[in-house]
């Protein structure tokens, strides 16, 4: 009995290990094949180790241009989406207005809508409005669906925050914008940073919505997708690996910023230990409802 139990325990472990292996093999393969000394058009079989492709990753000018476009689009998208999304999140959590439920629903809708539907509907609109598709239509499309993720991320942070702090600032004479920049923004900073990372990652990766609205503009995912049809230069693996490392660094940076901000928050709270920070009544407000 005990022996068979142990066997089953082992089975669970092996099953999990196999699943992890399954997750990693394709990613590992992409990194590995960036060092492949391949001869033909397709980089599908291992032929020997070389560092050649890493020396000149941007040998193909189209590939370099596509990468440049992707990074630029991601940068513009991130700034715009974080600006819009943060304000929208503040409006949705801090104010009561007519149609608030509908607004919340519409923010969520792009995340629930299939990407093909999003891409198609935007292109249909651009076509009818007579707007030529290209760089800026991609940016508009990306902002549209990354805003939702920004709102959700920032909102989660805002909801854990005491609204009375902002009211205190306003009672002391701060205007709407002063309160936002001096009080709200520093407190939700970790959420905003996380949202920016998320928006940038989604924008760089997107294929579907981009392909509908790209026109003649190439982005990195579009380039690879097209390349897999005629033959894939190993530089694609190199850039894919670089992108992976870049996103990992971004995530690491995000974690570091979160930790630093958390430390700052702790320092602020711990500085005046003589006074109890908030009166009991308002503090009870949010938790009472949440419970």
């Amino acid at each position: 009995m005990r022996a068979s139990d142990r066997a089953r325990n082992w089975a669970l472990g092996i099953w999990s290990a196999a699943a992890l292996l399954f997750l990693f093999i394709p990613v590992f393969l992409i990194v590995l094949f960036s060092f492949n000394d391949n001869k033909g058009r397709f980089n599908f079989t291992w032929q020997g180790f070389t560092l050649d492709h890493w020396k000149e990753p941007f040998r193909d000018p189209d590939l370099a241009k596509a990468m440049e476009n992707s990074l630029l689009i991601a940068a513009v998208t991130t700034v715009a989406a974080v600006l819009l999304g943060t304000l929208l999140a503040v409006a949705l959590t801090r104010y009561r207005f007519r149609g608030q439920g509908a607004a919340g629903f519409f923010v969520f809708l792009p995340m629930a809508t299939p990407e093909v539907v999003l891409g198609a509907s935007l292109l249909a609109m651009f076509l009818v409005a007579g707007i030529d598709t290209g760089f800026w239509t991609i940016v508009i499309a990306h902002v549209m669906f990354t805003v939702s993720y920004v709102v959700v991320t920032v909102r989660a942070r805002l909801e854990g925050m005491d609204p009375y702090i902002e009211e205190a600032a306003q009672d002391l004479g701060a205007g709407v914008w002063t309160t936002f920049f001096k009080v709200t923004l520093p407190m939700i900073a970790p959420g905003v940073v996380a949202a920016a990372v998320l928006a940038a990652a989604i924008s760089i990766d997107d294929y579907v919505v981009t392909s509908f609205n790209a026109g003649q503009t190439q982005t990195f995912p579009l380039y690879i997708f097209g390349a897999t049809r005629q033959g894939v230069p190993p530089e694609v693996n190199v850039l894919g690996t670089m992108l992976l490392v870049g996103v990992l660094l971004l995530m690491g940076l995000n974690l570091a910023v979160q930790k630093a901000l958390a430390r700052r928050d702790r320092a602020v709270v711990e500085e005046p230990p003589s006074q109890p920070p908030t009166p009991a009544v308002p503090a009870a407000g949010p938790s009472a409802v949440a419970g």
């Binding site: 819009l84 304000l87 929208l88 503040v90 409006a91 801090r94 104010y95 009561r96 207005f97 607004a103 519409f106 923010v107 809708l109 792009p110 809508t113 539907v117 999003l118 198609a120 509907s121 935007l122 249909a124 609109m125 009818v128 508009i140 902002v143 549209m144 805003v147 609204p163 902002e166 009211e167 306003q170 709407v176 914008w177 936002f180």
Partner: peptide, 27 residues
């Protein structure tokens, strides 16, 4: 705080409507 601040909301809401609601309705 219950009063909406249209300065915060209006540009965002308007843009968002144009960007998302209009295309989907159009589809």
């Amino acid at each position: 705080s219950r009063r909406p601040s249209w300065r915060l909301l209006a540009p965002v809401g308007g843009l968002y409507g144009v960007q998302f609601v209009v295309p989907l309705a159009f589809l």
